[in-house]
Amino acid sequence: MAIIVLAGCVQTKNGVPTGEGWVYNFLVAPMGQLITFFAKDQGFGYGTGIILTTLIVRAIIFPLGLYQAWKASYQAVRREHLKPVLDPIQERLKNAKDQQEQLLIQQEMMAVQKENGVSMFGGMGCLPLLIQMPFFTAIFYAARYTPGVTEATFLGMDLGKPSLILTAVVGILYFIQSYISMQAVDPMQREQMKTMMYVSPLMIVVMSFTSPAGVTLYWLVGGIIQIIQQLIVNYLVRPYHKRIVAEEFEKNPPKARPATTSTYKKDVTPASMNQAIMPNNIKKSNKKRNAGKQRSR
């Protein structure tokens, strides 16, 4: 999936960049030149060139990733403080009798979240990710198609062929990153998302197993950066947000709304009882009509 997304940002033919398009001209080509600069002009070799270039690119977009994580952490902490209000609503949603009742409860939940400053989308937004994506795309293609990379070696590994050692290291790194990120999730949600802790590293392992070691080297550096970012969120950002949100909710306690579903009651009266509970004026009018019919006969 990641490769498909990446491929959509660069014009390719048979999987190879055509050299056209703004992403290639403004990002892929300069990054390829930077790799070559470190590899040939500075004599570091292509493996070190990929590592240094990836570090520079990651350093440029690191603030965006951290900002996105900051917003997500703040919203997650607010949602945790709102659990006493949201949990009863969610319980009623699970026990809803029909679709109309579910819709009313969902509207009630959305209103409670809005009134208490909680975003349904986690407060992250798509803009930071959209800005980062061309950079991820560029370094991916630069690590794979820069001239000289496929013929080079790094620590005895052929950068033009898959490396089992690098694949194993990358799998371990992304598992650690997934595990650390799960620690910042609510225990109940953590149990529900447990599968993702294994799926993400497995996908990286599969892609690394079928990709040249030069690309896997790029993923390795990216995995280390993600672990550092997640540690910052877990041990610096999240504790700060817990303190700030606790103060905010102490000044303005969570607002609960009256249950909107209390006014919605589905008519489940059997048809046979309708006549028994019919108002007297309707019954009298029915008797008069019946009496008229009998006289006409």
Rank of each mutant, 00 (worst) to 15 (best):
I4S: 11
G8Q: 15
G8Y: 14
K13F: 05
W22N: 09
V23R: 07
A29S: 14
P30T: 01
P30R: 11
G32I: 00
Q33F: 00
L34M: 09
L34G: 05
T36H: 10
G43S: 05
F44E: 07
G45F: 03
G47M: 01
G47R: 00
I50L: 03
I50T: 02
I51R: 01
V57E: 09
R58L: 14
I60F: 14
Y67Q: 14
Y67M: 07
A69R: 03
A69C: 05
A72M: 11
Y74L: 12
R79V: 03
K83T: 01
K83W: 04
D87S: 06
D87H: 07
P88L: 12
Q90R: 13
Q100V: 10
Q100Y: 07
Q100K: 14
Q106K: 14
M110V: 01
A111W: 02
V112S: 11
V112I: 15
V112Y: 04
E115K: 15
N116V: 08
M120I: 13
M120R: 05
F121T: 09
L127V: 14
L129G: 15
I131C: 11
P134I: 07
P134F: 03
F135W: 01
Y145A: 01
T146D: 12
G148F: 06
T150R: 14
T153F: 02
L155Q: 08
D158K: 15
L159K: 06
G160N: 08
G160E: 02
A168K: 12
G171H: 00
I172W: 05
I172L: 12
Y174H: 14
Y174S: 15
F175H: 12
S181K: 12
S181E: 04
Q183P: 00
A184R: 15
A184W: 11
P187N: 11
R190D: 08
T195I: 06
Y198E: 13
S200I: 01
M203I: 09
I204S: 10
V206S: 05
F209G: 08
T210H: 10
P212E: 06
P212F: 10
G214R: 01
V221L: 08
G222N: 12
I227H: 08
L236I: 06
V237A: 08
P239Q: 07
P239M: 04
P239T: 03
H241R: 04
K242S: 12
R243Q: 08
I244H: 10
E250V: 02
N252G: 02
P258G: 01
T260F: 13
Y264F: 13
K265F: 09
K265C: 02
D267I: 03
V268D: 11
V268N: 10
T269G: 09
P270N: 13
A271L: 14
A271K: 14
N274V: 15
I277L: 11
M278S: 13
M278N: 08
R289A: 13
G292M: 11
K293C: 09
